Simulated assay, not measured.
Amino acid sequence: MLTINLKDAKARFSSMVNEAINGEFVTITRHGKPVAALVSVEVAEAARMAIEPKRARLVAYLRTFPGCEVFERNSAPSRDMEW
């Protein structure tokens, strides 16, 4: 895993993309703290597919609660405002 600061990442972006394409994980830091990661599209898609089923199961579970057949927004103001 390659770790690089943001300033150097800007200067070497093209080579870092090549690293990601070759399967390398590139961690970008700002002030010494990790803030972003550069990975290949395949890795990003795999991560997204791992998360999506969990989100779908949660939504399906929440819809089993009584009264959740239709989600409507309450149009009433949250408080009466008098100026």
Rank of each mutant, 00 (worst) to 15 (best):
V59K: 15
A20P: 05
N18E: 09
R30L: 08
E45Q: 14
E69C: 02
M81C: 04
A20R: 10
G23V: 09
E42N: 15
V70C: 03
A60S: 14
T64P: 03
S40M: 08
A37C: 02
E52K: 13
M81H: 06
N22I: 02
T64K: 14
T64G: 09
L38W: 04
L58A: 14
A76H: 13
S14Y: 04
N18D: 11
A36E: 13
E45Y: 14
A11N: 04
A9D: 00
F71T: 10
I28F: 08
R48H: 14
A9F: 01
M1E: 03
A60N: 14
A56H: 08
L6S: 01
N5C: 07
I4E: 02
I4N: 02
F71H: 03
L62E: 06
K7M: 01
R55M: 14
N22E: 10
V17K: 11
T64N: 12
H31F: 05
K54T: 10
V41S: 05
A76D: 15
A37T: 11
V26E: 00
K10G: 05
R63T: 05
L38N: 03
W83C: 01
R57Y: 15
V39T: 11
E24Y: 02
W83H: 07
T64V: 05
H31K: 06
F13W: 15
K33D: 06
C68A: 10
R48T: 13
P77H: 10
L2D: 01
P53H: 15
R48N: 11
